[in-house]
Nucleic acid binder design. Structure first.
Lengths: 292, 292
DNA sequence: GCTGATTGATACTGGATGAGCATCGATGCT
DNA sequence: AGCATCGATGCTCATCCAGTATCAATCAGC
């Protein structure tokens, strides 16, 4: 098999067509160059250079090998660069999972920041339902996820991204739908639409904590996993809900979003597995701005 | 710079993910493989494999290098093949020069034969006037030319391709134009259109020899270099001419081609320079059929 | 819980490889 | 004829690489 050294030597010689100068350029003396070229020719069984004892010329085969060898040397240098870049996380792929709710909000800005700060990283997006995020991270099926903070310690790391208040969603025909600001206490008797706590404990606790602070425990009429579905059910008149403020962007006929007079902030952030060794993660996390 | 050996070893290891089996596959023992991989990692400053003391896994950088290395090894093997092929003439380029007259005749069949017998050779065609053929060959501006045989010995080699008789060209209005076969002697008093002898001595001698055998020396009215021009001038009524029979294919209104009762054969063939070291030449010449 | 097997890493040694030095042979120029 | 240039060759020495023997760590099974 052709050796890198042989290609180097041959390319230098083919470039200069002069054994002495090529050797000098390679920081070796002339005899080893002569010998390496001779060995290369013998190995290939091909005369690469016509030595006229006063001038050196490439044969047809020599010209062909010259072109091939230059490409291979360039590919070698590139392989080295690319491998180093990959190890440093500047080059690679990151799989980001998120629920559709997050797409309304911080995702576009986040992707722009990453694209600008780490152009070599390809981000693969995957929309999922919130219940599978933790498993996907733990099993290595995804590298990053946009989630609420984790309530119980685990092997999942978390870095805050942004925080937003809750807002109320009411059916358009609801008696409170005309308010511009709402006191949560007014919803004490309303049927609530929520979601199972294990889907997003932090958000669930924020919603219930908000109600408790206003002196009531919400009457849960329906439970579903997706915030979008909650809003849809509200629009159908099946109840009311407290959802993250960014859900406003849904613009759904039949549902009205109303600011709360006093609301807790609900935080979301990036989660990743402690076992994930994707070298792009530190770079992306460092690029990610802290919550405002 | 990355060494071929390192790439080989690394690819085998990345394929098997097992030092022992990879070493066996490489026909070496395990310790040198461990060392080479360690050296590669140190040289790159990158961890390519995660050794879990019970399993070996590629890191992100390792996967990247694996892909790059496989491509490079394939390119190395290809470079070797291609260089050998080029040296043996199976791969390469040949420049073929010819006068337009030859294109009427043997060129298509010749190119088909070559294409079939040596598909790796690219033939570059160049149409020229006959006077520059010898110089172009001698100066290495072209590799092959379709020419008449050379009258004087030179550094140009020659291999016959085909032979054909002469035929007469007369203006359509000429008194002899209705003949289907012509005795050259009948043209003794006609004004002849020919070409300078140095353009194609063999053809010139054939034309003049033909006349002399029939007892006359042609009266040269006009001289021009191209056979096509000769036929054009005949069509204009400026004289008569003897041209290679394949010129019939010109199909020019105003000119009539008539077989000769008794004609010499004029031969054409492939010429090339003795100094031309294009390794494709022997192959193409061997493929070229002898004249029928 | 201990023993044996497996797996990768390390110390050491011998053979191969490659670079430098000196020199030769051939060619071209003065 | 003499000198300079250029690539090839003989020789020596340092380096590199593969093989042998061995170790440390881990896992399986009794």
């Amino acid at each position: 098999m052709l050796e890198t050294r042989q290609l180097h030597y041959f390319v230098a010689l083919a470039d200069t067509l002069h054994f002495g100068r090529a050797a000098e350029q390679l920081h070796i003396t002339q005899p080893p160059l002569s010998r390496q070229i001779a060995a290369l020719e013998q190995q290939l069984g091909v005369t690469l250079l016509a030595r006229n004892s006063r001038s050196v010329t490439l044969t047809a085969a020599g010209r062909r090998l010259h072109a091939e060898a230059r490409q291979i040397l360039a590919a070698l240098a590139q392989a080295e660069r690319v491998t180093r870049s990959t190890a440093q996380g500047e080059l690679g792929e990151v799989r980001l999972s998120f629920t559709m709710a997050a797409a309304w909000n911080v995702l576009p800005a986040l992707l722009k920041t990453w694209q600008h700060g780490a152009p070599g990283i390809t981000v693969t997006l995957r929309e999922v339902t919130p219940d599978v995020l933790a498993d996907a991270l733990a099993r290595g099926e995804t590298d990053l996820a946009i989630t609420f903070p984790w309530k119980q310690p685990s092997l999942l790391h978390y870095q805050p991204l942004f925080a937003e208040p809750l807002c109320a969603v009411l059916p358009a025909a609801h008696r409170l739908a005309q308010h511009t600001t709402l006191d949560v206490a007014l919803l004490a008797q309303e049927p609530f639409i929520t979601f199972p706590r294990d889907v997003a404990p932090a958000l669930h606790d924020a919603v219930f904590g908000c109600c408790m602070e206003h002196g009531f425990a919400p009457a849960i009429q329906l439970e579903t996993r997706l915030q979008q579905t909650i809003v849809n059910l509200v629009a159908e008149g099946l109840g009311v809900a407290l959802v993250p403020a960014s859900m406003r962007k849904m613009q759904l006929a039949g549902a009205v979003f109303i600011d709360l007079a006093r609301s807790p902030q609900v935080e979301q952030g990036l989660s990743w597995s402690a076992h994930n060794d994707n070298p792009c993660l530190p770079l992306l996390l460092a690029l990610t701005p802290a919550p405002s």
